[in-house]
Write a protein that binds this DNA or RNA. Structure first.
Lengths: 216, 216
DNA sequence: ATCGTATACATTGTATACAATGATGATTAA
DNA sequence: TTAATCATCATTGTATACAATGTATACGAT
């Protein structure tokens, strides 16, 4: 077998740099990306850049339109689309994880949320968000479905940008998280799926509100 | 604004040609794609080819491994993954379409399935499959969720190859289709989603059996 | 001044040239 | 023979060169 020269380092670099620029709003929504400019700014040629752009398109960060490749504008309609899909995917994630997750992992999660909740009560707002992120990510891994993994991954890119993962306060979501874990503990996959799905759908209608704040 | 030279024709060509080769089994599972060879065979250079490969990866047809870009082997595990995801996506599709679909479209579908069912009874086996395909595709369009659209699209590429869309006979699925339509008619989105989801999940466990026949 | 035409420019998609590097096989040392 | 070394090759990722084409600007005719 063969593994040849060049491991695509510059492609990854270009991908990451452009992503960063978009998330930092250094590249603004609806701005059309002119390849030479960006390539020079990043310090690569257009060849790896072009492939990076294809991947960014897969991740919904740029969009190929009739006048070039443009930075996607995250309209509330688009964000709602993402969240509707995320809801069913996370639901599936829970369903698949339910028969596979082991007891220690369940209590790990419980303790994680408990501890994060207490931290939140005492003013540390970041902890709960972090716990939530770990929870979803780990579940996805446990589910062990590669297609699910990739689909979720591509929708989650946006989370980083907009922190929509926790529009609702832990006060509301804590019991939901616990309920999901208990459903898993009793190996009720249907219930776990349903609870997770509702858990996320409950946040969806808040997107408009939240989003109007960060609007460009 | 600007729209410049070259509309990516060769990239599309490369994409389509390679896809065709894979589906025709001209490129076999686990075979590693060597770019120069394929590029010459298709009659393009490696530059557009490379980007086409990135898109094929998005559609789960090739896979980048430690020894190059290889044609994906559709193990039954992988196919099950696809179908598990498809189930929830199609479910969502139904849910979203329910409040949007209009009466005429509903009766269009009903008649479509009725007619296709009769054709199937008299030996025309293809008609029902076609109807099913139209149904799912049209629902997806009505749902009007771009993320859902893209996710479904990328999983449906494989259908063409494997015709898993109709592992079960219309005798079984006909009433399911009708039930879904009736749920939509009464604007019960929850029910429509649930029915569609089960409709597809019911086929999932048959994948192993079916797939073992077409194995490479 | 206004309109049409032509010329220059910017930007793209594509082809090719090049350097790096893992694989392969020949050649030699024991 | 076997093991080790080295040179050649195949293949990749990347950079650059090139041709096509839309856009804008300059210029001239009316």
């Amino acid at each position: 077998m063969s593994r040849k020269a060049g491991n695509g380092y510059l492609e990854k670099k270009a991908y990451n740099e452009i992503k960063k620029m978009i998330l930092n709003n250094e590249l603004k929504p609806d701005e059309t990306i002119i390849q030479d400019q960006i390539a020079q700014k990043i310090g690569v040629s257009r060849t790896p850049l072009r492939r990076a752009l294809a991947e960014l398109e897969r991740d919904y960060l740029v969009e190929t339109t009739s006048n070039g490749i443009v930075v996607r504008r995250f309209s509330d309609e688009f964000l709602r689309s993402v969240w509707e899909v995320r809801a069913v995917l996370e639901g599936l994630s829970s369903r698949l994880a339910t028969p596979l997750i082991d007891e220690p992992m369940i209590s790990y999660f419980k303790t994680l949320f408990e501890s994060a909740y207490r931290k939140w009560e005492s003013g540390e707002s970041e902890a709960y968000k972090k716990a939530d992120e770990i929870f979803h990510r780990k579940l996805m891994e446990i589910a062990g479905n590669i297609v699910l993994h990739r689909s979720l991954e591509s929708t989650q890119v946006l989370n980083i940008a907009f922190d929509l993962g926790l529009v609702r306060s832990p006060e509301e979501t804590y019991t939901e998280h616990m309920d999901i874990l208990e459903a898993m503990e009793s190996r009720d996959a249907d219930k776990a799926e349903k609870l997770m799905l509702e858990h996320i759908r409950n946040s969806t209608h808040l997107i408009n509100v939240k989003y109007s704040i960060i609007k460009d």
